Computed example of a mutant assay.
Amino acid sequence: MRIAIAYDCLFPWSKGGGERQYRRFAEEFAAAGHDVTYLTRRFWPEAEPPIIDGIRIVAVNADQELYDVNGTRRPGPALRYARGLFTHLLRHRTAYDAVLVSALPTTNVLATRAALAGSNVIIAADWLEVWEPAQWREYAGPVTGRIATALQHLAARLSPIATCHSQLSANRLKTAGLRTAPLISPGLIDVADTPPPNFTAPPRAIYIGRHIPDKRVETLPAAIAAARTHLPALTATIYGDGPTKALVQAEINRLGLTAVIDLPGFVSQPELDAAIRNAACVVNPSAREGYGLVVVEACAAATPVVLVAGNGNASTELIEEGINGQIAASTTPETLGNAIAEVISAGTLLRKSTYAWFTEASQTKTLTATAQAILALLAE
């Protein structure tokens, strides 16, 4: 098949779970013998276009910044990408047999349906996340949040084929008006990138990700302080960057933890892999996750994970408490700190059961299996 993947970011020129997922889908589709085009935006120097073996990269628009100073996706770039996607697909209505379009943002789905209306092109909408109306209003404000909710419902109803990556998203798609049963992916484990396991590690907790309000990174310093009442030798490293990083630094300063918690920003992938492998636990206090790639990446290195329960946090579906980590009931210092201390105190036994969980999951819950399931769905 001639397949187009439509997403406005491309790994590693842009970093994130969605970027890595769609890049790997493109690679898997190409490896299976299909002709693959990646429709994205140009956010690299024009004289240095990205090159990926076996994949044609087409920029349908150019925008440098997707997010505002608060880490919220700006509507302008989303609309301009949707317009560029619409224009490209309208001009190339016979160039593709199928389009896998990311429903983040949902305007991508609407643009694709409009451009290919009446054609024989198969359209599949891939939903990284599906939000409730209250989440949209909190994220984007009362007016834009209501508009986003309405667009999400419309995109769900206009998704002839839908794929998602958690039961949470599948349930919300049904509520939003999806007319068919979605394909829930078996998993997104990428076994090709798994580091060797490490069954011993010093008492060190790490966080990996962007610093934006939904991730609640600023709650970590107080939780680390609380955990240190049980584990005085505990240290932490908080990786990543974003608009709430200043709040994180302020909390570290307020609690007198500058010698305990490092804040290095973004680092290279090899350094990040080593950090995961040598951490006693990965902790993520995020309020929302569409899948939780960091969970399986940590488990691949035998590093257990601490998450926080929440209505929008699908990553908790990956945790079996006492097997590969813990789910804290809240981000209060005592609750989250106790979960961190409990996981680290479990030591080698928990690390071995974490790796056993990954070994079993990696037989079936893989990104390759998901890509193959999507291809089978398109072919059918």
Score class of each variant (00 low, 15 high):
Ala279Trp: 01
Thr219Tyr: 08
Tyr291Pro: 01
Ala226Tyr: 03
Gln249Cys: 06
Val283Met: 13
Ala233Ile: 04
Ala227His: 11
Thr235Asp: 11
Ala227Met: 07
Ala236Val: 08
Ala222Ile: 06
Lys215Ile: 03
Phe266Thr: 02
Ile252Cys: 03
Arg288Lys: 13
Ala274Arg: 13
Gln249Asp: 13
Leu220Phe: 05
Leu272Cys: 00
Ala279Tyr: 00
Leu255Lys: 05
Gln249Ala: 08
Ala250Tyr: 03
Gln269Lys: 06
Thr235Cys: 00
Ser268Cys: 04
Tyr239Thr: 03
Val248Phe: 01
Ala287Asn: 15
Thr258Gly: 15
Thr219Glu: 03
Gly240Ala: 00
Ala223Asp: 01
Leu234Phe: 07
Arg277Pro: 01
Pro270Asp: 11
Thr244Cys: 05
Pro264Ile: 02
Glu271Phe: 03
Thr237Asn: 04
Val248Ser: 09
Ala275Trp: 10
Pro243Arg: 07
Leu220Cys: 08
Thr244His: 09
Ala227Val: 05
Lys215Trp: 06
Leu263Asn: 13
Ala222Trp: 08
Lys215Phe: 00
His230Thr: 11
Asn278Trp: 04
Asn284Thr: 12
Ala246Gly: 09
Asn253Trp: 06
Ala236Asn: 05
Thr258Lys: 12
Arg254Asn: 11
Ile252Phe: 01
Ala222Thr: 07
Asn253Ser: 15
Leu272Trp: 01
Gly240Asn: 05
Arg277Met: 04
Ala236His: 00
Asn253Val: 12
Gln249Trp: 09
Thr219Gln: 12
Lys215Arg: 09
Pro243Gln: 04
Thr219His: 13
Cys281Thr: 15
Asn253Glu: 11
Phe266Gly: 09
Ala223Ser: 03
Glu289Thr: 01
Thr258Arg: 06
Tyr239Ala: 04
Arg254Tyr: 02
Thr244Ala: 05
Pro243Val: 01
Ser286Thr: 15
Asn253Thr: 15
Ala227Arg: 09
Thr258Leu: 08
Ala287Glu: 15
Lys245His: 12
